[in-house]
Computed example of a mutant assay.
Amino acid sequence: MRHPRAAVSLASASAVLVVILAGCTVAEPQAAPTPTPTVETVVQVSTTGPTITGTGPTDPYPGVDFPLPDHARSVTIDFECEGGTNFHIEVGDPMATGEAALGGTCDGITSLTWPVTENTAQKLFVWTPDDVEWTATPHYSTAEFIRDQAITTECEAFSSVYSAFSNADIGFTEYQAFDEAEWKRRVDAAAAELATLADTSETTMAESFDALLAWVRGDGYTPGAVLHDTSLIDPISDTCNTNHSPLILMGEFGG
């Protein structure tokens, strides 16, 4: 037989439990915290290849051997020469890969960078005057060469403008394909395109576009002027080449 006091105590305990539960809000189940994604740090690997030396231009074909390691996605060449003359370098076949020949002035070390893809031929071509001694030290990297898309777009647009100026000059002065009135019409149309490009430019070429526009509407408004004075076009071409989005001119005359 159960002891009465024990029964009372149990009943009281049950009542207390009911009161406690009645006064509490049952907590909703909490979702497990979402793990923070782990960001992997990509380590860029850079290696230096053997220095190549020469005097004067390399033979156009086949050039000199230029081994590219498997990890290379870009290559920077430290090119050193003296004397103040100009030089140009090609890695592989830029025309086939849509890249550019790069150059500079022989006044110390100039660093120049190219993309490296599966289509990059393992050859190096150098153009300098015959008596110029030079060295080329390659630095290969796993870092991809990233083209500036704004520069690429503006270089494509300027290619069309420059082609129009050139075809106007060549057609009139060399082929006599049309008269001066047609030359003026063509130049004016190209200048209008250049003005639009200058107004909308988002790159460092904006100033060069403005300078060229002022010239072709002023002192350069002469048949043949664009063909014989490229001093205002060279800075634009250099920017496009460095970005490996070179100017591509469409010729209307000649073979």
Score class of each variant (00 low, 15 high):
residue 3 H to F: 11
residue 4 P to M: 04
residue 5 R to E: 05
residue 7 A to E: 07
residue 7 A to S: 05
residue 8 V to G: 04
residue 8 V to N: 02
residue 9 S to M: 12
residue 14 S to L: 15
residue 16 V to M: 08
residue 19 V to Y: 08
residue 22 A to M: 13
residue 23 G to A: 15
residue 24 C to M: 12
residue 25 T to Y: 07
residue 27 A to Q: 12
residue 28 E to H: 08
residue 29 P to T: 04
residue 34 T to P: 00
residue 37 P to R: 02
residue 46 S to M: 07
residue 47 T to M: 04
residue 47 T to H: 02
residue 48 T to Y: 01
residue 51 T to D: 06
residue 52 I to E: 07
residue 54 G to K: 03
residue 54 G to V: 11
residue 58 T to W: 09
residue 61 Y to E: 13
residue 65 D to F: 01
residue 68 L to R: 10
residue 74 S to F: 02
residue 75 V to H: 04
residue 75 V to K: 03
residue 76 T to M: 07
residue 77 I to N: 00
residue 82 E to G: 03
residue 83 G to V: 06
residue 87 F to A: 00
residue 88 H to G: 13
residue 92 G to N: 07
residue 97 T to F: 09
residue 98 G to Y: 04
residue 99 E to V: 12
residue 105 T to F: 10
residue 107 D to R: 13
residue 108 G to L: 11
residue 111 S to R: 11
residue 114 W to F: 10
residue 117 T to A: 06
residue 121 A to D: 13
residue 123 K to V: 15
residue 125 F to V: 06
residue 128 T to S: 09
residue 130 D to S: 14
residue 138 P to A: 08
residue 140 Y to N: 06
residue 145 F to A: 05
residue 152 T to H: 08
residue 153 T to C: 01
residue 157 A to M: 06
residue 158 F to I: 05
residue 162 Y to S: 13
residue 166 S to E: 04
residue 168 A to E: 00
residue 170 I to D: 06
residue 172 F to M: 08
residue 172 F to A: 09
residue 174 E to I: 07
residue 174 E to G: 00
residue 179 D to P: 03
residue 182 E to H: 07
residue 186 R to C: 02
residue 189 A to P: 05
residue 190 A to I: 05
residue 190 A to D: 06
residue 192 A to M: 09
residue 197 L to P: 01
residue 197 L to A: 02
residue 197 L to K: 03
residue 198 A to L: 05
residue 203 T to H: 09
residue 204 T to K: 09
residue 206 A to R: 14
residue 209 F to K: 06
residue 214 A to L: 13
residue 215 W to E: 10
residue 216 V to T: 11
residue 219 D to G: 10
residue 222 T to R: 15
residue 225 A to M: 10
residue 226 V to Q: 10
residue 226 V to T: 13
residue 227 L to Y: 05
residue 233 I to T: 13
residue 239 T to G: 02
residue 241 N to R: 13
residue 242 T to R: 15
residue 245 S to H: 01
residue 245 S to N: 03
residue 246 P to Y: 01
residue 248 I to M: 11
residue 252 E to N: 11
